[in-house]
């Protein structure tokens, strides 16, 4: 099956690599400006084009992978749906709920499959946490703490650091945990949050959020784009009969990069697995396209995740909790 990669930054390259591992062929790479597309196309022996809208309408394309900046997702999803292509969209599905609704409606209307990359659902360690809970190791879950982040990413033109475009660390980073928490513990009733986006003289963000779930479970999530370097994920699940802790720093490989001329590099502690979680989600997408099974993430899940993140941003603005259900 042939795919077009729309957006050829870090995520575009990662998805291209994992899609190929899952049996797809990268036929076209498109980005604006086109130089990133040319670099990526060369690597995958694909064609580079400067116009994403043209790329996703080509006859030799079966599905598109949208890995462009967040505010462009919905337009590309709609265009791909209209062209009859199946869609793998990087999270978040949209910058606004209106964008999410437009994207979901277009996919439904044109009968194409829309998958959104909430990849944490495929991470081995997060699946292992769920397995321990399901095995009854810690009794009834009452409290969860998550932590994710490190250095603030740039993106082309620094769009990640512009909260108007990216939604800051809440919509781009914390959304991973918001989605996973809902996946593991059900729908949230309300969310309260604080953040630093645009509130300091630095281009950093730091998000502190608490969710109350309908089940009664309380979750506190910390998301950081405020660190000078590095990336770390932690999770703690507390139950009536025990507790589970995960820390990405407890990894089989740790790396210490030397400072480069362009500053410290972002190195994630390496915890190699035979099949990356990104490849797993591409395999899930492939099975869906082949009619074998449903994927782990539905469009409604993706909309929920955006809703939770936007509610957190609204709460930080108003200083009061936002009710979700």
């Amino acid at each position: 099956m042939n795919i077009a990669i729309i957006g050829c930054g870090m995520m575009g390259e990662l998805h291209a690599t994992c899609a190929v591992e899952a049996g797809f062929r990268v036929a076209v790479c498109a980005s604006q400006p086109a130089d990133a597309a040319e670099t990526l196309a060369k690597k995958f022996d694909a064609e580079a084009v400067a116009e994403p809208m043209a790329a996703l309408q080509r006859d030799d394309i079966d599905a598109v992978c949208i890995a462009s900046p967040t505010p462009t997702h919905a337009d590309y999803v709609v265009a791909a749906a209209e062209a009859g292509k199946h869609i793998f969209c990087e999270k978040p599905l949209g910058r606004t709920i209106e964008q999410c609704d437009r994207a979901i409606a277009a996919a439904e209307q044109h009968g194409v499959k829309l998958y959104v990359g909430h990849v944490v659902r495929y991470f081995h360690e997060f699946e292992a946490i769920r397995a321990q809970i399901d095995a009854g190791k810690i009794g009834k879950v009452g409290f969860v703490k998550t932590y994710r982040g490190g250095i603030s990413p740039m993106g082309a033109g620094g769009w990640f650091r512009d909260a108007k475009q990216s939604g800051g660390a809440t919509l781009d980073l914390l959304i991973h945990d918001l989605d996973w928490l809902r996946y593991a513990f059900g729908d949230p009733d309300r969310v309260f949050s604080q953040n630093l986006a645009g509130k300091t003289s630095l281009l950093i963000d730091y998000v502190l959020a608490t969710m109350r779930f309908s089940s009664g479970v309380i979750a506190q999530s910390v998301g950081t784009w405020a660190h000078p370097a590095g990336f770390r994920v932690k999770a703690e699940v507390c139950g009536s009969g025990g507790m589970i802790q995960y820390d990405s720093q407890d990894a089989p490989i740790s790396a210490m990069p030397r400072e480069t001329e362009s500053g410290p590099s972002m190195i994630v502690p390496a915890s190699p697995v035979n099949e990356s979680p990104y490849t797993r989600e591409w395999r899930d997408f492939a099975k869906w396209l082949n009619g074998e099974s449903e994927p782990r993430v539905t469009p409604d899940d993706a909309r929920w995740a955006v809703r939770m993140a936007l509610a957190a941003i609204d709460s930080a603005e108003s200083g009061q909790p936002v009710t979700l259900s």
Binding site: F143, K145, C238
Partner: peptide
């Protein structure tokens, strides 16, 4: 801005 967890969430183990 501050977040805090105040808990008795550590198990006996």
């Amino acid at each position: 801005m501050v977040s805090h967890v105040a808990s008795w969430n550590r198990p006996a183990s």
